[in-house]
Design a protein around this nucleic acid. Structure first.
Lengths: 198, 198, 198, 198
DNA sequence: GATGAATGAGCTTTCATTCAT
DNA sequence: AATGAATGAAAGCTCATTCAT
């Protein structure tokens, strides 16, 4: 019986689209592909998202919120900055292992097909919930005297570029070990790069 | 009257395709777009590259060779490992400023549209000339006792993820300063992350 | 709490459809458009009209009846034929100003999308209440010796073509003056064209 | 053998589209319909006209030019105004008999689907070659003292509305006689309506 | 009567690729 | 080598209509 609610339908589309977009790319994935994966008609898809592009934009907001929420929790913990780095790396790699679609979508769809996201996502509009938390992390670390006071983007680029790079290598099956094995050394590398300098 | 040689024609296509693919993306760019930019007919294009995919693959080989050659020169210099890091960062950022198509193609087309490159580029086949030099750099640094002996991919991910991330931020016009300004701090961050630990 | 009767609902649909069809055209107007304008659900619409085409046919009957009734009243007046022409022109232009949907529907939907009305409206079936009155007007004028005895359609084409043409020009905002200003000269033109010839 | 030139292809599309649009209407006619009638592929159609709307606009220009050229010739003849009216009516009815697609397109597609022609054809932009000649005819008639000096649109509406109305009736097979039979009485009606008044 | 989610055929348009010249 | 008209499959999207509730 259990009737499917509108909310559930929408979530179903989000899941299916995330999986397909991240695996095959935005252009290769068709609306029929998505509809079929959800088990609905093409026409009905458009009752939930008015275009393929709008779907893509909602997905990145969804992911950014999800990442932001996780970062928020870490930011609020009463632990050292070094430990926070470890937790962020760990959370990120866990996500990359458990829900690879999300990180892959971020890296392969959002970052690489900016023409799709257009001015609606100019700058960091569509990823602000996540970037904001990274700024908070960094500023607090500096305030506490744990991190070297440098340009935020230089630090941000290191952190996210590094993690993104590793997940990429992992996604390409180039890493000899599971991601988890790298957590410690990577956290240390990051900490060494960012920590306060005497 | 200098007749255009076959080689020149091919290079013309490579330039045009690189510019278009990196600016607009692989799927948005059409063969007529490329042919028009080179000033040749669509039909003739196919005398030089037998398909759009094959063109894309030749491009990544071309870029990897170019990057590899530059790295090779740095590797052969008689300078400290720390200085080599600076030179690599400098070379990478110079390329990103002078020939942005190359780095952008690497980041936005090659890394994000793996379905295009398929098994021909599995693993690192199509970027080996460049990755190999990075391995040499790293192994020599370890051998000399300058770098911490860790998993290569962990170090590689840091290096390339970081640089890629910065170029991305730059490409999105999010950096307050020109890339060059970041060279020093980034080189130092990398060195701090990778250097030999006591 | 005045409940909305079936009749009122139906009239609501007729008004909404008339407005939308005449402004946007038959094909551009969708059933959801109409339902929304009436404030009812799409499904419920079909309880009143079993298809879009049937709605279109009922509309033209409705308009023809309305026009016919107005003509009937003029025909019954005890005035000269020349005055009747003036009254018809005046009534037509008043309608075009006050309820432009009706005339516009007639001109832009009924006359131009015959495939929609099909054999149900072949000939003048769907506009007979109006055409019949025009015939009466003409025949009485001839009988009274006021109008030249010519083929009815030749006279009808003049009368309705002329008025339709003017309303068209008006609808396109091409007339320098309000329609009313033309009543006199047009009535005279028509009378001159149709009047009894010595 | 005889290779089909680009020009011939384009004319082929114009003919086919004119026939289909005027018979079935703009929305009912599909690009595949047109392509099939010309004997070409759907894709190739777009090498000649970049959209269905642009095709529609080119058609009305084509028709307006054709009509305009015919009117021009009549305007240049050294005959009385009354004779010119006869010739215009005759030419118009001949066209409606010989190439009914043209007049039908004008009446049923152009006049009734203004949303298709949009601002590109605002006012009389797309029919100016034809309207201009009508203005010349009228002004010369007034100058010569043959026609009553009234508002141009009032006269234009009579002339074109009347003729359009007759062709409409003819197209609906409502006229008992062939169009030609009406030429004389209609010309006279028009002349009586427009002629100089004492 | 009333709802609106669901269907699916069909539309316009695009584009990699071919091939006669 | 060079041309560009031609192909046709496939994409995104729409909408009249139905039907379970």
């Amino acid at each position: 019986m259990a009737k499917i609610t509108k909310e559930e339908r929408k979530n179903g589309i989000i899941s299916a689209a995330l999986a397909l977009f991240s695996q095959q790319g935005f252009y290769v994935t068709t609306i029929p592909d998505i509809a079929q994966k959800v088990g609905m008609s093409v026409g009905n898809f458009y009752n939930y998202f008015s275009s393929k592009e709008i779907l893509a934009k909602e997905l990145i907001l969804y992911i950014s919120d999800y990442l932001g929420k996780n970062l928020r929790e870490i930011n609020m913990k009463e632990i050292t900055t070094e430990e926070k780095i470890q937790e962020i790396v760990s959370m990120y790699f866990k996500m990359a292992s458990d829900k690879p679609e999300m990180i892959e979508y971020f890296l392969r769809v959002y970052l690489s097909n900016r023409e799709v996201f257009g001015s609606d996502c100019a700058g960091m509009i569509c990823v602000s919930s996540f970037v904001t938390e990274m700024m908070i992390f960094f500023e607090e670390g500096v305030a506490k005297g744990d991190l070297h006071n440098q340009d935020f983007f230089s630090a941000f680029g290191l952190f996210m570029g590094y993690l993104g790079g590793m997940v990429f290598l992992f996604g390409e099956a180039l890493l000899p070990e599971p991601l988890k094995e790298y957590e410690e050394s990577i956290s240390l590398n990051i900490y060494n790069a960012l920590k306060h300098r005497d």
